[in-house]
């Protein structure tokens, strides 16, 4: 009897904690590079993301190999020559929403994200503004920011003439 009560209690506790937790396995993260010869664009539809509104915590994890390119050869070079995805298979973001309370209501809100971005095995603190759209149990996070390849130890050997800075675009819907 006591055990049953305890289980109920524990269940209620976990439910209570997860009520403000939103997540997805199909987040969309893309990047765009404005290069001299040809623009390079790739999209990843399999980003994992989670946001805990109570604590204001947010995290993203994506597999580098899951970026899809227009040309297969570009994808191969991206993985083999630039991102070294065999050594650094994942890219992550771990941080916090500085003003999570705005997201308690439905509507479009401006939020601020701050945290550690890890790409190619290098971690860097970033702070970016983002838009959060809440519709009931759905949160959509959209943001765009620019990173420099050099800051993440990604070498541009000038053979392919790729841009030094690329724009990362996040458009991810999380559900509770």
């Amino acid at each position: 009897m006591k055990n049953a009560l305890l289980s109920l209690f524990a269940l209620a506790l976990t439910l209570g904690l997860s009520a403000q937790k939103f997540s997805t396995k199909t987040g969309e993260v893309s990047f765009f590079s404005d290069a001299a010869l040809e623009d390079i664009e790739a999209v990843n539809h399999q980003a994992l993301a989670a946001l805990d509104l109570d604590k204001g915590n947010i995290a993203f994890v994506l597999q580098i190999r899951s970026f899809e390119f227009e040309k297969a050869l570009m994808q191969e070079h991206f993985n083999e020559n630039y991102m070294h995805s065999d050594k650094f298979p994942k890219s992550t973001f771990e941080g916090s929403v500085l003003n999570p309370e705005v997201a308690r209501k439905d509507g479009t809100h401006e939020i601020k994200l701050k945290g550690k971005l890890t790409i190619h095995g290098e971690t860097k603190e970033i702070a970016v503004p983002a838009t959060l759209v809440r519709k009931g149990n759905e949160l959509t996070i959209q943001c765009r920011f620019t990173i420099k390849l050099g800051e993440f130890g990604i070498k541009n050997d000038k053979v392919e003439n790729i841009a030094e800075a690329i724009e990362i675009r996040v458009n991810t819907t999380l559900k509770s």
Binding site: K25, L48, A49, A50, L51, D52, N57, I58, A59, F60, V61, L62, Q63, K90, T92, E94
Partner: peptide, 11 residues
């Protein structure tokens, strides 16, 4: 666990 650890384990 942190949120990131959870996601990494899931990934």
């Amino acid at each position: 666990q942190s949120l990131l650890d959870e996601l990494e384990a899931e990934a």
